[in-house]
Design a protein around this nucleic acid. Structure first.
Lengths: 229, 229
DNA sequence: GTCGATCTTTACGAATTCCTTAGGTCCACC
DNA sequence: GGTGGACCTAAGGAATTCGTAAAGATCGAC
């Protein structure tokens, strides 16, 4: 099993140092960034499992950074809020964070929250996703629709798998593109349109009125498992 | 092919009865148990392919039962969890379950997951793999096709054995190359092409339309045991 | 040294997938 | 009504991968 990768984003060098030594000691692979901008750069370079994000930073704040990160990554995000200002916590969760910790925090608590967040990352480590009349078998790379096996090309399958990995939640264009095509394709929305179109033709009973592969205008696409809109 | 054996473990008699009638109707051989303790007894008595295990039971809970079962059996385990209890699902997989279904569940979904889980039963490399008209005797390094022994070269046999070791699942080029040729041959895809071609000529009835050694475009190759595309 | 079996390269047409383009639909807004 | 943006759909060409055969290279047995 590979070590989980954690990105520490904070403008104070001291905090970064403490985090790095502690987390490295616990067996995590640690990277760091001094600002939200730098964090986004790191994300383009490598995959990260979890991001520790200070809410108070010069330049783009922690909340803005969080929102930006969420459009391109599904890494778990834990925000560090300074005081127990209730509005900070709510804002953090609204911006797409998974959890928050108030500074000053105890290391054991932070470590516990990191463990909990990392366990949540593989939203679906389940082999098979079943949505109405569609079955997706991840390991076998097979899709069965209304009892019939359907041939999907690799890109089609990867896209479907990523969409279905977090069902019933809209996933932004940029995140889909990065997950399937790679970090340099964040704005090629036309690719998405073509492949979504292809998927609908192959999977939906009525491609013009899809019930599973839904578009979320201005945001992205969503894979719906249940029925009832 | 014998019917697969399924053990239903639930303390509610009604659930056991519904499961028994439905699964028996689908051609499975059904046994049941009212508790984790009883399930372990059944396991000592006979071989079981799959276990449906309620997570909420008096006595030793479903999770503890799952862990116990895992120490003595490699049967597939599907746990029945309560909807929306996210930690139950993670705990179930952690305890060694292969999959879970949330109550109340739809029968079609449960049946689909049972089929998928049964397809994944691990193939023991030390024993004989039989796929349609191909028999692979690992220990003797012998292959029999339609009753005729077939001569394979060492590399051909290693490749076939590795492919057949995890049947029905596409195995990436790089993994095959590393497994058969060694760690430094990760990108010599041409080797694969020639040897797969060779294997097909020796094993397939119609090498141009293979039924067992299938290619997964852009990904790798897959050894298919069942039929049905 | 020769032979035979196996493994490594090479080459090229065929098949498939991916990218690109272009026209059309829908909807909010002026 | 008209306009613009986002989205849908279809189709063709470019690029990549796959299948196949056949020619070197390697190695051990004799």
């Amino acid at each position: 099993m590979n070590a989980s990768t954690i990105l520490v984003v904070d403008d104070e060098p001291q905090i970064r140092r403490v985090m790095r030594t502690t987390l490295t000691g616990k067996g995590y692979e640690v990277h760091d960034a001094r600002s939200g901008e730098e964090a986004l750069e790191r994300l383009r370079e490598r995959h990260l499992d979890l991001i520790l994000l200070d809410i108070n930073m010069p330049g783009m704040g922690g909340l803005a950074a969080c929102r930006e990160i969420r459009t391109v990554s599904d890494a778990a995000i834990i925000m560090l809020t300074v005081r127990d200002a209730e509005e900070d916590k709510i804002a953090a969760l609204d911006a797409g964070a998974d959890d928050y910790v108030t500074k000053p925090f105890s290391m054991p608590e932070l470590l516990a929250r990191i463990r909990a967040a990392l366990r949540r990352v593989p939203t679906d480590l389940r082999e098979t996703v079943i949505a109405g009349d569609i079955e997706i078998h991840a390991a076998e790379r097979r899709v069965i629709v209304r009892g019939q096996a359907v041939r999907l090309t690799p890109k089609e399958f990867d896209l479907l798998l990523y969409l279905a990995g977090t069902p019933n939640v809209p996933i932004p264009h940029a995140r889909l593109l990065q997950a399937v095509w790679g970090p340099d394709y964040g704005d090629q929305v036309e690719y998405l349109r073509t492949f979504i179109n292809q998927l609908r033709k192959k999977l939906e009973a009525d491609p013009a009125h899809p019930r599973h592969i839904l578009t979320e205008p201005w945001v992205g696409y969503r894979f719906q498992t249940g029925f009832g809109q």
